[in-house]
């Protein structure tokens, strides 16, 4: 079987291209891109958290409300982020390499799809999708007979051990597929 290109070429190329535009050639007054991005993320996360925490009652020092601790933390995070941002113009830490978008999106996407499918289409389908998409993230994966046999064995192992053996409440075949099985007269 030829190697299935399950990667989302269009999407990932667009995302990668948009990222290309921002990331690799930092303006040269930023001497430490690593600190720059970290600082930026910290400041954004911190101010976001602070803004959300404004909704929670602050209370007083002696009787802290639910908003107290998060707001203090958020401010500290913003402060640390600012320091990192300042450092970004002073220190020299070298370039940050590209994010590896392909494995990143494929692995995370595979897990999300598994989450969507596992209780609706059932464990077998969900694992098949997870393993196929997940395995396709490696440049060495070939979907040959050996890999497919391995996948079948792994799925059978999971069903036998986790569902039949340990009794986890995961449907082997989910409600989405049951009509299909009913139609051919197999009860699942």
């Amino acid at each position: 079987m030829a190697r299935t290109r399950v990667s989302m070429p269009a999407v990932s190329r667009v995302v990668a291209a948009s990222f290309d535009a921002v990331e690799p050639r930092m303006p040269n007054w930023i001497s430490s891109p690593r600190d720059f991005w970290t600082g930026l993320i910290y400041v954004l996360l911190g101010s976001g958290a602070f803004w959300i925490a404004l909704d929670y009652p602050l209370g007083t020092v002696g009787r802290m409300g639910p908003g107290y601790f998060p707001r203090v933390l958020a401010l500290i995070l913003v402060g640390i982020g600012m320091m990192a941002l300042i450092r970004a113009f002073v220190l020299d830490s070298g370039e940050v390499t590209h994010l590896a978008w392909k494995p990143l999106l494929m692995i995370c996407g595979a897990i999300v799809l598994y989450g969507i499918l596992v209780q609706t289409a059932g464990l077998v389908v969900a694992l098949t999708v997870l393993l196929t998409l997940g395995a396709a993230a490696s440049r060495y994966t070939r979907f040959d007979l050996k890999s497919i046999a391995g996948m079948v064995v792994l799925i059978a192992f999971c069903v036998l051990v986790f569902v039949k053996g340990l009794g986890l409440p995961i449907p082997t075949v989910g409600p989405w597929l049951q009509p299909l099985f009913m139609a051919v007269g197999i009860r699942v």
Binding site: I111, Y114, L127, L130, L131, G134, S138, Y140, L168
Partner: peptide
């Protein structure tokens, strides 16, 4: 065992574990 045979299994166990 090459890594590209291993990590899909790790993915599967992590996903089932997280669901449980």
């Amino acid at each position: 065992v090459p890594y590209h045979y291993l990590y899909p299994a790790i993915l599967a166990f992590c996903s089932i574990g997280a669901l449980s």
